[in-house]
Amino acid sequence: NRRVIAMPSVRKYAREKGVDIRLVQGTGKNGRVLKEDIDAWLAG
């Protein structure tokens, strides 16, 4: 149960899109989840 590193704005964006942020692979520094990662996850 790893802790997800993401800015609050990215967490909010994921919530609005209905994405469980824990399932998204972060590509930022130290595995940080970026807004682009959410978009990529939604695109498949």
Rank of each mutant, 00 (worst) to 15 (best):
A6G: 05
A14D: 00
V19P: 00
G28Y: 01
G18E: 08
D20P: 09
R2K: 14
V10T: 07
I38P: 00
D39W: 03
D39C: 05
L23K: 14
L42T: 06
D37G: 01
R11I: 10
R32P: 02
G18D: 08
G26R: 03
N30M: 12
M7H: 15
V4I: 14
I5T: 08
K12A: 10
I21K: 00
G26P: 09
A40F: 11
G44M: 15
K12H: 09
T27L: 04
M7Q: 15
V19S: 01
G44E: 15
R32E: 14
R22E: 10
G26F: 02
T27S: 14
L34T: 12
D20W: 05
A43I: 13
V10E: 09
K35F: 09
G44F: 14
K17N: 12
A6L: 03
K12V: 07
R15M: 12
K17D: 01
G18I: 03
M7I: 12
A43K: 14
A14S: 06
G26T: 03
L34K: 11
Y13D: 05
N1E: 15
L23T: 09
N1R: 15
V24A: 04
T27N: 06
L42V: 11
K35T: 09
N30G: 12
G26H: 03
V4N: 07
N1K: 15
R32A: 14
V4L: 08
K35E: 07
V33E: 00
G18H: 11
R3T: 14
R11A: 05
D37Q: 01
G28I: 02
R3I: 14
V33S: 01
K17M: 14
K17P: 00
G26L: 02
R15F: 13
G26S: 05
V33D: 00
L34S: 10
M7F: 15
I21R: 01
R22F: 10
A6R: 03
V10I: 09
I21M: 06
K35M: 12
E36M: 13
M7A: 15
A40L: 14
A40I: 11
I5Q: 06
I38K: 00
Y13L: 05
L34H: 07
S9E: 13
W41V: 07
A6D: 04
A14M: 01
Q25T: 14
W41E: 04
Q25P: 14
D39M: 05
L42E: 05
T27A: 04
E36V: 13
T27P: 01
K12M: 09
L34M: 12
R15A: 14
S9F: 07
G31S: 07
G31W: 04
K17F: 08
V33H: 01
G26A: 07
V10K: 01
R2S: 10
R11Q: 08
K12E: 11
I5N: 06
I38A: 00
I38W: 00
V33L: 05
W41Q: 04
I5C: 07
K17V: 13
W41F: 14
I5S: 08
G44R: 15
L42A: 07
G26E: 02
K17L: 13
G31R: 06
V19I: 10
A14G: 03
R22W: 10
G31I: 02
T27M: 05
R3L: 07
T27E: 03
L42P: 03
S9G: 13
A40V: 11
R11H: 11
G18V: 04
A43S: 13
A14F: 01
M7S: 15
P8W: 05
L23D: 10
A40T: 13
I38L: 04
G31E: 06
K12D: 11
I5V: 14
E36L: 11
Q25G: 09
N1P: 15
R22H: 10
D37N: 06
